[in-house]
Design a binder for these strands. Structure first.
Lengths: 345, 345
DNA sequence: AATCTTATTGTAAACGATTACATCTATTAA
DNA sequence: TTAATAGATGTAATCGTTTACAATAAGATT
């Protein structure tokens, strides 16, 4: 309704009158070309003329028309952003980081919200394309990813950079949080959810990801003064059977935790099987948290406001990555940046 | 740094090639004027030509260049927004409401953050002006208001609409939260701050604002199951002396509250005087909350996330108000809208 | 047959800026 | 004296679109 209305009236309403280069030219009886050159402080303009132009420009409160410039330069100087929501402070903080970078580089930012809906995300991406954005920053919805559309946009020459919730199917630059942090947040999430007896099924000892996730678990527990007993951490490997047997042994010992943060999803599934076979329920009796690309993102995001996350930095990093894709020729290789800075525990 | 860099490369990098009206015209060996008319579905174009144009446009995946349109129409189709911060979810939610309206009406939204700094706010307003926004939505900083600049912008033909934290010195449309709600939030703020014994010095019985504020106080107390005794609410009038005597009588009775929500600022100041004279300290012994245009805004905002505020609606309302200022000729009278909907207690 | 409509299309200017190229003047070199 | 050069400025095209006006052809009217 308001849509139709505003289109209807759009021709009746004149925009505010701005001073143009032509106005300056007329006032001084010189050509617009000279004015343009004078304003650009080019060397082939008489200093006296330059001064006069600058003075007149100031007098008329002249400001270059960004729209005309964009048309002339054939650059929209705009990038698009798609975030799932605004409710939590997570994405707004990321946006603040993005804005800082965009302000610095003179780009405009078009912000859209997908409301966790794939359909709305599609609409937003189309809208951004229609607005000729030179690149897109995106954190995908919970519902899933519009894989085909991402690929289409990239193929058509619009670079995409994913952050936080990234697409696994598309080759593009990405900014994510590191294993340690994510494990930390996942554990903290369990703590904030009210569970008291929290265990960890860790992965193979020789894997770095394994020790990183364990470290995240341990640090989160420590931060909240939760006790870590001998049984708190069990090595359960990467596959389902190990998760099963680990949980089985706990049930046998009647040392049943309220929640378990598992190294990965197969481990969690194995544990789930053991829980069910013992006639227990998940999450009423034992809550499980797996750790896969997508699952964990759902857990820690929207995140707990009490935890300081590198949100601002994430926005900055993603924005810089995108700008690099846009301005660099030839475009740089895609890269995935993992935010590694230390937590304040 | 990144600024200089991006300017340097800007001419080297070609934007994605889009299909134009000229491409369609060339493909069909007709003039661009006819193509333009056909796409606009004007009646003075042969139906056959129309069909061919539409088909070719689809084939070339043609989309009108919004930048060229803006130049042609002399309308930036953009409005600017200045909010103090992004950390709390308050402003992001307001933004969501604004965006909804803007999407509907085809306007772009330029979002800036003033970080509670008057200086940054000035910069942002200038930036928006340079970007030729057709109107500005603003919630002012804690530090104060850039009164002169607001007036300058309005005088120069850029309509401003204030929301939540509004300027008291400028004549412009405003969107605020009603007395009842603000009183409710203020009281709830005291509750969340940990005070147990909370009193209210209410205004004259015959004033609607007075009963509204009292109602807000009562409802907030009820919501959190705080007892309201005979002494909890005292009628203290509008002036300082009444606040003084009200507090004095409480001190005399040795019925000293931990916190008092006062009808207005003079009342609070009077109460403060009594507290000091009794050798007590504020806020250690007795915390006071006044109620003036600016003070109360500081209290309830950034607001408590546990309270559902009409944030989305506030954004919507402010945006609609601004759009009306922009599109309507002659521009409508300025108006102040008070959000009145019911709270879920 | 001459004139007038009507339908359809094209031409060209405009929006505000930039810039390759042309032009003109004044100075310098031969 | 003449040609070359440098300095300063103007002309006109361009970016993608819209639109007032002109132009054309066909059919209708007298």
């Amino acid at each position: 309704m308001s849509n139709i209305f505003s289109i209807f009236v759009s021709n009746l309403v004149a925009m505010k009158k701005y001073s143009t280069i032509k106005d300056i030219a007329n006032a001084l009886n010189i050509s617009t070309a000279t004015v343009s050159r004078a304003l650009a402080d080019r060397c082939d303009v008489n200093q006296e003329t330059k001064n006069k132009v600058l003075e007149e420009a100031k007098r008329q409160n002249y400001r270059p028309n960004p729209i005309a410039l964009r048309l002339q330069n054939k650059r929209s100087k705009t990038i698009g952003l798609v975030v799932p929501e605004f409710k939590s402070s997570f994405f707004p903080m990321v946006i603040a980081g993005i804005q800082k970078v965009m302000d610095e580089s003179g780009f405009q930012l078009l912000i859209t919200q997908s409301q966790e809906s794939m359909e709305v995300e599609r609409r937003n991406l189309k809208l951004l394309e229609n607005n000729m954005v030179e690149g897109i920053l995106i954190s995908i919805t919970r519902e899933g990813e519009n894989f085909d559309l991402y690929q289409e946009l990239i193929d058509s020459g619009i670079p995409l950079v994913f952050f936080n919730r990234v697409s696994t199917k598309v080759v593009a630059s990405k900014v994510v949080i590191d294993d340690y942090r994510r494990a930390f947040f996942a554990t903290e999430h369990l703590i904030y959810s009210g569970f008291k007896k929290i265990y960890h099924f860790s992965g193979p000892k020789n894997l770095i990801v394994s020790s990183e996730r364990k470290r995240g678990f341990v640090d989160a527990m420590k931060k909240h003064h939760f006790e870590i007993t001998d049984n708190s951490i069990m090595t359960a490997g990467v596959f389902m059977d190990k998760g099963f047997s680990a949980m089985q042994s706990l049930i046998d010992k009647n040392d049943i935790p309220e929640a378990v943060f598992c190294f990965n999803d197969p481990t969690a599934l194995g544990a789930l099987k053991a829980i069910k076979e013992a006639g227990l329920k998940c999450p009423e009796d034992v809550a499980l948290v797996g750790f896969s690309e997508t699952e964990i993102a759902q857990l820690v995001d929207p995140p707990l406001t009490s935890v300081e996350q590198p949100t601002f930095e994430m926005g900055e990093t993603a924005a810089r990555l995108l700008l690099k894709q846009i301005t660099q020729t030839p475009p740089p290789e895609v890269e995935t940046i993992c935010l590694l800075e230390k937590l304040n525990i």
